[in-house]
Design a protein around this nucleic acid. Structure first.
Length: 492
RNA sequence: CGGGAUGUAGCGUAGCCCGGUUAUCGCGCCUGGUUUGGGACCAGGAGGUCGCAAGUUCGAAUCUUGCCAUCCCGACCA
């Protein structure tokens, strides 16, 4: 078996690709920039989706589904948004193929079947949704509208990377409509908190909550809030965004409502989303040179049990004991897999489940049975211990919680150690080059300076942290006065 | 989209420069047996549009051109 993974030290990008391909999360496909999410990867996404979906419902949202295609005229209605996405839109121009008269067995696009109006494959759904909301909203009594959709979107990226940036990806997009700006802003921040809660408490990945600079803001938004995470190579990754859209889309699509005084006003909007990109974040945040390391709370399999035996007789005894354990574990809501396949020997299985990031591995053999114990190995630290079969399930449950907590703590201390203040340009660049991570530095607040810094250092403003401390200082590049530090980083 | 690299069985590869029988080797796979506490062993076996297409040639994995895909670097990117 040669499932060698490139080490992180040797080539971080290759390590990332190796992990995803060899652990069975995903595969490349025959379509440029598009990937196949394999069952193991999709199981992970389903777990994430289920948790998020519940969180959305618990905050009053409902799911709906809108079309994949957006007529070009609708798409271009909100100008800034349209311009922002124009360069990466897939466009449907025809609706029919026909047999190629010059090439038997081949098809050509039927030139007779040109669409009168091109359809844009949604890169996001604001346009089609706001065109619809127009028909749903007349009065303040129709508000708020709190809708989410789980969907695929297409953004024709020049350069793609598994999970992090693909031409087609899965996500959820929330689109809400409100009677007041205040209410919309509350919603925007609430959903940012939901994302932070999910990413930190389920994915064990600490995030910085913040607001984007104008350059990095969503096209068509008044404010873009975000959660930023830090990867093991010191690069930052935007893990989720929540936008306060003001009245931009309401104006573009003429969505007005009558308030209690019967005055007409445009509706206030938000949108927010996270995508399968989170899986990329998860991989890069926790995994090691032996494979994935998955947080127990979203791992498709939390516990795998591997039997060790000589001959059928022993196997039967172990099977019986394992069935008991499985039952106890399941009773506590633990996802457990008993791998008694005879195809692979235990050592092979151990390596395989490490590669797949299963949080806890249990090995049970005759010696263990004699002593009423099992060998328990935790993926995060690779520690092995002998655990009594009395109260076994409770012990495992506790262990899973410990692993979850340990992963978070580990990622958090790494993150905290990689927020470095810089007060001079040299310090700034040197920190980025040698240490990576976030650099907290003063910025004069102008897009020009931000652009210049990006050009010179490849670092962008990841966010202006919420609840940032006020501190007078001088811009790292221009020396102009600044009132607070913002977080810079090189990013995915 | 620009520069560089790669593509030979499921995976990793030799052969390519210098065209010439039946395309090399390892892992994996199948059958049988022995095994099973960190990626087992023996014996036998199957598996190939040499990325795709066109061209040059008596003959192409090998030479030429175009295309497709992947990786790296850039540009681009909510």
């Amino acid at each position: 078996m040669s499932k060698e993974i490139t080490s992180r030290a040797q080539d971080y990008s290759q390590w990332y690709n190796d992990l995803i391909l060899k652990s069975g999360l995903a595969d490349y496909s025959a379509v440029r920039g598009c990937m196949v999410i394999k069952p193991y990867g999709f199981a992970l996404w389903e777990n994430m989706r289920d948790v998020l979906d519940k969180m959305f419902k618990d905050t009053g949202h409902v799911n709906a589904y809108f079309p994949l295609f957006v007529p070009k005229s609708l798409f271009e209605a909100e100008e800034k948004n349209a311009e922002g996405f124009a360069k990466e839109c897939a466009v449907v121009t025809h609706y029919r193929l026909k047999a190629d008269p010059n090439n038997k067995g081949k098809l050509i696009v039927d030139p007779e079947a040109k669409l009168e109006e091109e359809l844009v494959v949604r890169p996001t759904s604001e346009a089609i949704i706001w065109n619809t909301y127009k028909t749903w909203i007349q009065s303040y009594r129709d508000l708020p509208i709190l809708v989410n959709q789980w969907a695929n979107v297409v953004r024709w990226e020049m350069r793609t990377r598994l999970f992090l940036r693909t031409a087609e990806f899965l996500w959820q997009e929330g689109h809400t409509a409100h009677a007041t700006a205040e209410e919309a802003i509350v919603e925007t921040k609430k959903m940012l908190d939901v994302y932070a809660d999910f990413v930190e408490n389920w994915m064990a990945l600490p995030v910085v909550k913040g607001v984007k600079s104008p350059n990095e803001r969503f096209a068509g938004a008044e404010d873009t809030y975000c959660i930023e995470a830090l990867m093991q190579d010191g690069k930052a990754l935007q893990a989720g965004t929540s936008h306060f859209l003001g009245q931009n889309f309401a104006k573009a699509f003429d969505v007005k409502f009558s308030d209690k005084e019967n005055k007409l006003d445009y509706v206030w909007a938000t949108s927010w989303g996270v995508s399968t990109r989170l899986i990329g974040a998860l991989v890069m945040a926790h995994s090691d040179d032996n494979g994935l390391v998955l947080p127990p709370k979203i791992a498709p399999v939390q516990v795998v049990i591997v039997p060790i035996y000589r001959g059928e007789e022993q196997k039967q005894v172990i099977d019986a004991k394992v069935q008991e354990l499985v039952k106890q574990l399941k009773a506590l809501g633990i996802t457990v897999k008993y791998d008694d396949s005879d195809n692979a020997r235990p050592g092979w299985k151990f390596a395989e489940y490490e590669l797949k990031g299963v949080p806890v591995r249990v090995a049970l053999g005759p010696k263990d049975l004699e002593n009423n114990v099992a060998e328990v190995a935790r993926r995060d630290t690779k520690e092995k211990s002998s655990v009594s079969l009395d109260g076994f399930a409770q012990h495992i449950q506790q262990l899973l919680e410990d692993i979850q907590q340990n992963l978070f703590n580990r990622a958090k201390s790494y993150r905290d150690e990689h927020i470095t203040p810089a007060n001079t340009w040299d310090e700034f660049v040197q920190t980025l080059d040698t240490k990576g991570g976030f650099v907290a530095a003063h910025w004069d607040g102008t897009p020009e300076t931000e652009e210049k810094i990006k050009e010179l250092s490849k670092a962008t403003i990841r966010c202006i942290p919420l609840n940032n401390t006020e501190e007078a200082g001088a811009c790292i590049l221009t020396g102009k006065p600044s009132s607070q530090r913002v977080l810079f980083a090189r990013a995915y």
